[in-house]
Simulated assay, not measured.
Amino acid sequence: MSERIGAPGSGISRRDFVKASGLGGTLALAGCTAPGSPKESVGTATNANAASSDLPTTSPPEVVDVDERGGEVTLSSVPARHDAHPGDSMGGPVELPQVWAFKADDGNPSVPGPILRTTEGEDMEVTLDNTDGMRPHTIHFHAVSKKWEDDGVPTTTGVRVDPGDSHTYTIPADVPGTHLYHCHYQTHRHIDMGMYGIFRVDPKGYEPADKEYFMTLKEWDSRLNRQMAGMDATYNPRNRNPDTFTINGKSAPHTLHPEQGSPVIVEQGDTVRIHMVNAGYMDHPMHIHNHRYQVTHKDGGEIPDVARHEQDVCSVPPAGRRTIEFTADADPGIYLMHCHKVNHAMNGTAYPGGMVTGLVYKEAMGTDIFKQLMEYAGYEG
């Protein structure tokens, strides 16, 4: 169990969260339906549970400090069940009966995969262990300059990691910034089954913000996941019709779950830095209520000061990365952060849901509305 609360990153301590929120005990109210939100399930959750009962359930993505592991990490893929929002509030449950989840070493499988973090100038030895796998895989790392055979594309390098095999990629950390990694074998299917994650290279002398978080955006057509689970579904990538929208693998209101979701938890006066990555195939304009921010980095490149400006929405294209920075200087409260394609902020026909999370001031955690949001999110204390 993590000792930090909130989205992957710095967060606040569990002790501080309990002290600020007063939610140390069990709420025993999880599963309430939000006012105005019809109680309807996305997909076929009952059949999904039956089809995937023998699979492990994914965990939230962990931040893996590769430097602390001597520059080495092993990734493998595990079939798993993924609960984007397991509760029945706000159009839930939202479930993907089968995903192919990455895990690092002996960690838990997660969607997105583990956040691999290293430092500029270091090399990573990333071993793709497919000895227990069921299908071929590869790993492709964006941005960094690597040797040809380490590019992760089987058709152009001749390197494919078949079931029963493993392969080690040497990945130089020579481009500071926030990047994407993913399987590049049958890419259109394997990314949509969950084989993606964030690769972060901290520049030399990096100074973190007071609060720093990672967010991976993704839309899903659950027909593929149901088809791969052996259910009665037919999927055509040429006729992709997303029905599930997630931040760090979760759909609202489960995005607000302090342990499994990705609330951005701040204190008045904090400097806040959020690294956003789009692992999907659609553009996602991300908006934060009541705050203005600057986009400081784009696709691993630093934006000069003279080119920056204050804004409250920025689009993150497929495979794109954006780092935003702002000061938590608003009236302490709870503010939405969401994709402004409003149909992406839904679970089925229920609104709100989907690609929505919250910017939560620690000072607002003791309020009744925060406790109500925790009920919707399924947090039981």
Score class of each variant (00 low, 15 high):
G6K: 07
S10T: 11
G11K: 09
V18C: 00
K19F: 05
L29G: 05
G31N: 06
V42A: 01
T44N: 15
A51Q: 14
S52C: 03
S59L: 02
G92C: 00
V94I: 11
P97E: 11
W100R: 08
D105M: 04
G113W: 01
T127K: 04
L128S: 06
N130H: 02
N130A: 09
R135N: 05
T138G: 03
H140C: 10
A143M: 12
V144Y: 07
D150L: 05
G152F: 02
P154R: 08
H167I: 01
Y169W: 12
Y169P: 07
D174T: 14
V175L: 10
P176I: 02
H184W: 02
H188E: 13
G194D: 01
M195H: 07
P208V: 14
P208M: 08
Y213S: 13
W220N: 15
D221E: 04
R223K: 15
A233L: 05
K250P: 06
P258E: 09
E259D: 13
G261S: 05
H275I: 07
H289Y: 03
H289N: 02
N290D: 15
V295K: 09
T296A: 03
D305S: 13
A307W: 02
R308I: 04
H309F: 13
D312P: 00
C314Q: 11
D329K: 10
G333Y: 07
I334W: 01
H338K: 03
N343D: 15
G348L: 10
M365F: 02
I369Q: 11
M374F: 07
Y376I: 08
A377F: 08
